[in-house]
């Protein structure tokens, strides 16, 4: 999963399609409009068509389609467990719910794969308490720094005969000690981070976050798609 997050982060920062250049606010509006269409629809035909259209949008945005589809499948698999428990022999509602899951997951993947995290977190940070807003940015940064360290640690552990899968209790103990090392490293790092925040005068917010609402012509792409999806939903299904 950590490598999925790293992958998404790279897609978002490196892309320069029209969808990438649209503002974060317009893309959040896109998500709201498309989710509105999805959540209010009970038509398998509409949902399947919307999913296909989203796939085309992913391709146009030059986000790798295969990995994006795989990423969007993750919540669908778990939804399937719940749907299975509710199945009463009729295929229509489960089909609708599965298509809803697929379409909404892919919408979310498209949002995050085209929007660098500072722009994505900025509007959320504005409407949440400072602890939550600043916490979001600091957690994200801390995560990426920790991933690199964790990768090196797990590699070293395996090279030295740990985490072999041959002795589960031993492996769990090794994994626990590895995570314990990461806890200590994170704690010490957090103290140093606090020191530097103190030196640099932290009293407000971590992020200046200037670009998330800068509108350009590129904003027509996500907003246009969202409005079209909603319009199509009402045209096909009425109220």
């Amino acid at each position: 999963m950590s490598h999925d997050l790293a992958l998404v982060d790279t897609w978002a920062s490196a892309g320069d399609s029209a969808f990438h250049r649209a503002s974060a606010l317009s893309k959040l509006l896109f998500v709201a409009l498309v989710l509105g269409a999805i959540l209010s629809s009970t038509s398998p035909a509409f949902l399947a068509g919307l999913y296909a259209a989203l796939c085309v949008l992913v391709l146009i945005s030059r986000v790798p389609l295969g990995p994006a589809l795989l990423l969007s499948l993750y919540p669908v698999l778990f939804s399937a467990l719940w749907l299975l428990s509710r199945w009463n022999g009729d295929w229509t509602m489960p089909l609708v719910l599965v298509l809803r899951s697929l379409a909404s997951s892919l919408t979310a993947v498209l949002l995050v794969a085209s929007t660098p995290y500072p722009d994505l977190f900025a509007p959320i940070a504005r409407v949440t308490p400072r602890l939550v807003g600043d916490g979001l940015f600091l957690t994200y940064r801390a995560f990426f720094l920790l991933v690199a360290r964790a990768d090196r640690m797990w590699t070293a552990m395996k090279l030295r005969g740990g985490l072999t899968g041959r002795g589960l209790p031993r492996d769990f103990r090794a994994a626990g000690e590895g995570l314990g090392q990461l806890v200590i490293h994170s704690y010490d790092r957090s103290q140093r981070l606090y020191a530097i925040m103190h030196i640099r005068g932290h009293s407000g917010r971590v992020c200046g976050c200037r670009h998330w609402a800068e509108f350009t012509a590129f904003d027509l792409v996500p907003v246009g798609f969202g409005l079209a999806a909603l319009a199509m939903r009402f045209w096909m299904e009425g109220r």
Partner: peptide
């Protein structure tokens, strides 16, 4: 706050 973020990152990992 920094500890919260640090342990949140460990949880994610």
């Amino acid at each position: 706050l920094t500890l919260l973020a640090a342990l949140g990152a460990v949880m994610l990992l």
